[in-house]
């Protein structure tokens, strides 16, 4: 049976852990709100851009002259997996889930005899991926200095990715991130970003046939495609930020509750031990008195 003193020490230590997890939970809740607002504010742009892309796609036919970003390299040998994780841990299963999704895809691709490379955003995916797929990580974007994701950050990453694509480093890029559903649920999501997947023009309204372009379609498309990659990345980063905070909030809430349970249990044990010690002492005294 543990001594009274060691029980007391344990109770104190669990209490201070609880204080930390509670504080982290509240910080995450505050950050979550902000991240959620940012993610929502970013939605209209992405939606409009998609609409523009769709209407443009219905005009342009994919031919040998179309930009590589749209048509692809004509190969699908080398796949780049862009894995967006967080910079900090203690966010429950957030990073694990994203990495697991990426890993599953990588295993599938390797089984098909394809080459797989990894491009990491955030440092938390690195340990697992470098252990499972040694030497496959081509680059890691450090985001630890970024507090709130700005479009410029996503733009930078997109430019690097496109430069690598044009340099022939890979043929297809997939993006992995966690889509934010609620504080309790984040869905690891896979998205192809290069070549730009075009949704087949859903509505073939006759009205749009008369659109005038300035400069012409191809030039607009050439401008639009890189931007689309950047926007997708930006959205993923925003969603990821919200998911991370949501996941951390839930994890810390659980931790706080567990610590509370543990404190209760330890306190009961402490009191029992104390009571037992008193009883023993009393018995000893009484027995001593009777013996006289």
């Amino acid at each position: 049976m543990p001594s009274l003193k060691s029980l007391k020490v344990r109770i104190t230590s669990v209490k201070s852990t609880q204080k930390i997890t509670k504080a982290m939970k509240m910080v995450a809740a505050a950050k979550l709100r902000r991240a959620q607002l940012a993610a929502e504010a970013g939605r209209p742009y992405a939606e409009r851009l998609n609409a523009v892309m769709a209407s443009l796609a219905s005009k342009v036919t994919i031919g040998p002259n179309s930009p590589k970003l749209l048509a692809g390299t004509g190969n699908d040998q080398c796949h780049m997996l862009v894995v967006a994780t967080s910079e900090r841990g203690l966010a429950g299963a957030f990073n694990t889930n994203i990495v697991r999704a990426a890993r599953k895809k990588a295993d599938e691709l390797i089984a098909q005899g394809k080459t797989v490379k990894f491009y990491l955003i955030g440092k938390k995916g690195r340990p697992v991926i470098s252990r499972l797929f040694p030497g496959k990580i081509v680059h890691q974007v450090d985001q630890s200095h970024i507090k709130n994701v700005a479009f410029a950050d996503a733009h930078e990453v997109a430019e690097d990715l496109i430069a690598r694509f044009n340099g022939g480093e890979y043929d297809i890029a997939h993006l992995f991130f966690a889509k934010f559903k609620s504080a309790l649920e984040q869905i690891p999501t896979e998205l192809q970003i290069v070549p730009v997947p075009l949704a087949p023009a859903a509505e073939a309204t006759g009205v749009s046939a008369a659109v005038e372009y300035e400069p012409d379609e191809d030039e607009i498309l050439a401008e639009l495609l890189p931007r689309n990659v950047a926007v997708q990345l930006f959205r993923a980063m925003l969603e990821n930020a919200a998911s991370e905070q949501g996941s951390r909030m839930t994890a810390m809430d659980n931790a706080t509750r567990n610590a509370g349970d543990m404190i209760n249990k330890l306190t009961i044990q402490y009191n029992r031990t104390r009571q037992a010690a008193i009883t023993t002492e009393l018995i000893e005294i009484i027995a001593g008195a009777e013996a006289l």
């Binding site: 009205v207 008369a210 659109v211 300035e214 400069p215 607009i220």
Partner: peptide, 16 residues
Amino acid sequence: EGDFGVLAGHAPFMSV
């Protein structure tokens, strides 16, 4: 390719 003004009822148009 130059500034342009858009009023209501403008023809479909797209520009950088």
